[in-house]
Design a protein around this nucleic acid. Sequence first.
DNA 1: CCATCAACCTGAGGCAACCTCAGGATAATT
DNA 2: AATTATCCTGAGGTTGCCTCAGGTTGATGG
Lengths: 200, 200
Amino acid sequence: MDGKPYIARRPKRADGRRNYDAILAAARKAFETSGADASLEDIASQAGVAIGTLYRHFPTRASLVEAATRDGLENLVARAERLAAGPDPLDALTEWMREAVVHFSTFRGLVGILARSMYDEGTPSHAMCAAMHRSGADLLRAAQAAGRVRPDLTPEELFDLLSGAAWVREQAASGRDGSPRFLRLVLEGITIREDRPLPH
Amino acid sequence: MDGKPYIARRPKRADGRRNYDAILAAARKAFETSGADASLEDIASQAGVAIGTLYRHFPTRASLVEAATRDGLENLVARAERLAAGPDPLDALTEWMREAVVHFSTFRGLVGILARSMYDEGTPSHAMCAAMHRSGADLLRAAQAAGRVRPDLTPEELFDLLSGAAWVREQAASGRDGSPRFLRLVLEGITIREDRPLPH
DNA sequence: CCATCAACCTGAGGCAACCTCAGGATAATT
DNA sequence: AATTATCCTGAGGTTGCCTCAGGTTGATGG
C-alpha cells in the first residue's frame, strides 16, 4: 500500500523524465488512432524505448490511459468552475455536458474505462472521475435549484446519460456522428420549461 | 461471393451438427460470463472439440456471435409485429424499446458489435440488424403518426438512444443498473403529451 | 455389407501481444 | 572518482488467434 497505487509519478532522473514524456506522447497518438487497446509494444517502440521501460513508468494499461487523459479531464473540471460562475445555471450545465461528451470520447474505449473507474476506487482514473463527479453534481444542483432541471435527476443518472452520449459518439467516430442530436434529445428530456411542465 | 458470406449454416453430417450445437452452447455460456471477447480456445475445449473445428463452423468471431444471438433477435423482430397489432402505438414502441435494450445487452460487448453491424453490410449480423431497423422504424412511424412521438426523430436516432441505453446497462451489469431510468428519461424526451408540447 | 468420398476433425505451429525479471547502464550525489 | 539509487534492456514464458496438412468418419449407392 504505497500512497497512491497505480498513479504514475513524473520520474526525477533526466533520462527517466525524457522517456516518460516520449511514451506519453506516443501513447496519445496510438490511442487516438487505434483506441484504448493499442499495442503497448508499438507505443514503446514508437517512443524509442524498450517495452520494459514502458512498464516501469506505467505498470498497467489503465495507468497509461490515466496519464494520457489527465490534462484534458483536469481542464474539464476547471471549466466547470468557470461555467458555474456564469449567469445561467442551465446554460452552464448543458455547455459542460457538451464538452464532457467530447472529452469522454477522445478515443475509442475511453468512456468504458472512465465509466468503470467512476464507481471503482483502486482504479487509476478513479480520483479524476470522482472530481468530475463533484463538478457535474455541482452544476446539476445549481440548475435544479434554479428550477431548470427536473429535481429527481441524480448525478449518477446524469453521468449515465453523459457516457451513453459519449459512447454513441465514439462508435460513430468515422462517419455519421449522432451525438449532438443524442445529447439534445436527452437534454430536452431532463430540462424544464415554463410551457412544458414535467409529466406526472 | 457465395450467397451469404460469413453466415454459418447448420451442417448436415450428424457429428457436424452435434459439434455445431455444442460449440454454440459453450459460446453462449462463455459470452455471458466473459463478454464477447471470451477465449475461442476455451469455448472449443468447453465444447469438447478442437480449435480447428470451431473455426470450421464459425470462421470469424463475429459469425459465432451472430449465431449465438440470432434466436433472441429474431424473437425481438417477431415481437415487434405482435406489438404493432396492439391498440396503443406509443405503448408498443416503448415496450419494444425496453425489450430491445435487454436483448442488446445480453453480454458485454454485444451492443458494440450490433451498432457496427447496423450500418456495415458484409458483417454477419448485418441482416439481422437491418430487420430490427425495419421493425423499429415501423413502430416509430406508427407512434409518430398517432402524434405521440416527436415527428423529427429518425430511426437512426432511435437506435442511437437504444444502444446508448443498452451500453449503460451492459456497463453496470454487475451492481447498479441505471438503464430503466435511462430509458425512461430518454422516452420522456421524445414523447409528446398534450400538457407538454415540444419546445420550439 | 462394402467401397467411396465429401464432409468433418485434429492439433501442431507460426504469429502477435502481454508482462516479468535478471543483469547491465547511467545520472545524480558526495 | 566512487557510490548508489534509479533507470534501461530485451530475452523469454504465457496466452490467444488463426491456418493448414494430414487423418478420420458419416452418408451414400451398389
